[in-house]
Every structure is written in structure tokens, then in C-alpha cells.
């Protein structure tokens, strides 16, 4: 098969699966949260309440698509699209199985970092274009939070890159055949987990939304499908971070041979998605200034130490 056609087909498949997964995650998250809180969660519509997804989609599509008269209209419309696009583009470099990658780029890590940085624009522009004070505050918080955590997110990955000696994600997975990088790069893993959480602005790092303070923050003025795009974008960001943690630290598709590689990859990703939901259920939101202070004062130095130590070790062993 023509490799280009193959990439296109794979890309469309990934798009299809991801969009459905995002919808499915709505149900998963609500059920899991409920169970962790000793409730049952949505269980009425369809088997196990699965049709709540359909109901949600119908609802979100049929709600009034309201653009406030005071909003900056073009930017207001553009903002939710950005988060969807950047999250989807991030997936292009993720190898789901040997050879099963949309774009087998040798600068995959950089591409992913670039895409996740681009995603911030969505939130900032959304908050700015809404032209309301809570939205603006949400947008500002997001920009500060993302800048702070972006820095050591990249640095946390550098250890992995040094060990693998490549920026290609497939190569990184292959480099873990002997040992998952979570073992030598445990600090890098923890840092990436935290930074990833902050990047996807999920609880406990949902400062830009902060229902209780900013009444939904940057997307407070959004309704209908525009809101839906933020909503889906958030779940895709969650999936992306989980997939990348698996790729960078947990050996990607690698696993005992009784299951195909794609399944191993999916299982590990699902586990981390579940972990993120558990985090949401368990950990309260920190104070905003504490979040920033923590990022700059502790996590950034720690990631630098980790990078230097890794580099020293690698130098000594190969030197």
C-alpha cells in the first residue's frame, strides 16, 4: 500500500477512534467519579447508562449557540477549534504499535511539545474574546500556569531523550525493550505526570475553570457545540497525556506476546486515564499562587537536577 495513503487512512482511523473515545470518557469519568464517591452515577439511559453519551451529544448539539453581543466574535469562534486541532495533531506522533503511527517523525517529542504549547492559545483567546471578567481571569491563570509547567515538562522528557538517544517516539519505545524508563527516570516520570496534568488543566489543576471561584472561567460564556469542543478537547488532552506517559515511561506497546501491541498500549493508556480520574476524585485544588510557587521553586530545579544527573550517568557509562 502506498505509505501516504496508509498514513491518511491511519490518521482518519485515529480521528474516528479518538472522537468516540472522548465521548465515551464522559461516561467513564462520571461513572468512575460516582463509584469513588459511593454513588452509582448515570445508570438509567441504556445498558449501564451508556446512552447518556447520546443524550449528552444531543443536548450539546441542540442547545442555543449563543455568542454574547459583547464578545470578540471571530476570536470567540476560533478559540475552541484550536484546542481540538492541537490535541488531535499531538496524536500524529504517538506510535500505537510498531509502524502504527500517523507521522513517524524523528522530532516527535518536539512536535508534541509544540502542539501542547499551541493549545494554550485556545484557552487564552477564549478567555480574552469572551470579554467578561471571570473568563479573562481564567485565561490569565491558564497562561501563567502553562508557561510555568511547560518549562519543566520539556526538561522532564530530556532524560528520556538522553537515554533513548532519539527524539523519535518509536525509537524511544524501542529503547525500553530492556527496561521501562520509569525505573531510571522515575523523577522524570513524576515531573511529567504533574506537568501533563497541569497542561491538560484537569483537577486538581483546573485553576482556569475553577467553578467555585471563576464560575467556569475561560469557557464561562460558551454554550452549545463551542463549549462541546472545549469539553472534548479536554478529554483528548487527557488521553494524549496518558498515551505519552505510556510511550515515554511505560514501554509504549511493549508487553508479553499473548496480547497484540495495540492492546497493550490501549490498556496502559486506559490505566492512566483511570488514574487521572482518581486524582480528580481525591485531591482538592491547590491555591493558585502555591501552584506557581511549587512549579518554579521545586519542580523546575528538580527537573534540572534530574537532567544533569541523567546526563552524567550516561556520560560515565558511555564515556
Amino acid at each position: 500500500m502506498d505509505p501516504t495513503l496508509q498514513s491518511v487512512l491511519l490518521g482518519l482511523t485515529v480521528l474516528f477512534v479518538l472522537l468516540h473515545l472522548a465521548g465515551f470518557l464522559i461516561w467513564v469519568e462520571r461513572r468512575l467519579l460516582a463509584l469513588m464517591q459511593d454513588r452509582l452515577g448515570p445508570n438509567r439511559a441504556g445498558p449501564f447508562g451508556l446512552f447518556i453519551i447520546v443524550a449528552d451529544i444531543i443536548k450539546i448539539f441542540t442547545k442555543e449557540d449563543w455568542t454574547p453581543p459583547f464578545a470578540d466574535r471571530p476570536v470567540f469562534v476560533l478559540a475552541p477549534a484550536i484546542i481540538m486541532i492541537t490535541a488531535l495533531l499531538g496524536f500524529t506522533v504517538v506510535p500505537f504499535a510498531p509502524g502504527l503511527v500517523v507521522m513517524d517523525s524523528n522530532i516527535g517529542v518536539l512536535f508534541f511539545l509544540a502542539m501542547s504549547s499551541m493549545g494554550i492559545y485556545s484557552v487564552i483567546l477564549g478567555g480574552w474574546a469572551s470579554n467578561s471578567k471571570y473568563s479573562l481571569l481564567g485565561g490569565l491563570r491558564m497562561s501563567a500556569q502553562m508557561f510555568s509547567y511547560e518549562v519543566f515538562m520539556g526538561l522532564a522528557l530530556m532524560g528520556v531523550v538522553i537515554l533513548a538517544g532519539s527524539l523519535n517516539l518509536s525509537d524511544i519505545v524501542e529503547a525500553q525493550r530492556g527496561m521501562w524508563f520509569v525505573v531510571p527516570q522515575f523523577i522524570g516520570f513524576v515531573l511529567f505526570l504533574i506537568a501533563g496534568l497541569a497542561e491538560s488543566h484537569r483537577l486538581p489543576f483546573d485553576m482556569p475553570e475553577a467553578e467555585s471561584e471563576l464560575v467556569a472561567g475561560f469557557h464561562g460564556e460558551y454554550s452549545s457545540m463551542k463549549f462541546g469542543m472545549f469539553f472534548v478537547g479536554e478529554y483528548m488532552g487527557l488521553t494524549l497525556i496518558s498515551a505519552l506517559i505510556v510511550t515515554f515511561f511505560f514501554g509504549g506497546w511493549l508487553g508479553p506476546g499473548f496480547l497484540p501491541p495495540v492492546v497493550w498500549f490501549s490498556l496502559k493508556t486506559a490505566l492512566f486515564i483511570g488514574f487521572f480520574i482518581l486524582l480528580r476524585a481525591a485531591i482538592p485544588r491547590p491555591r493558585y499562587d502555591q501552584l506557581l510557587a511549587w512549579g518554579w521553586k521545586y519542580l523546575l530545579p528538580l527537573s534540572l537536577v534530574n537532567l544533569v544527573a541523567t546526563a552524567v550517568v550516561v556520560l560515565i557509562r558511555h564515556g
Binding site: 460516582a34 469513588m36 454513588r39 482518581l278 481525591a282
Partner: peptide, 12 residues
């Protein structure tokens, strides 16, 4: 602890 609550009896 929150994880363990997954397996508790539900109040609903």
C-alpha cells in the same frame, strides 16, 4: 482511600 471507595456499598 478514594480508590478503595470504588468497591464500597453504594448509597444511592
Amino acid at each position: 482511600l478514594v480508590f478503595l471507595h470504588l468497591f464500597r456499598k453504594k448509597e444511592t
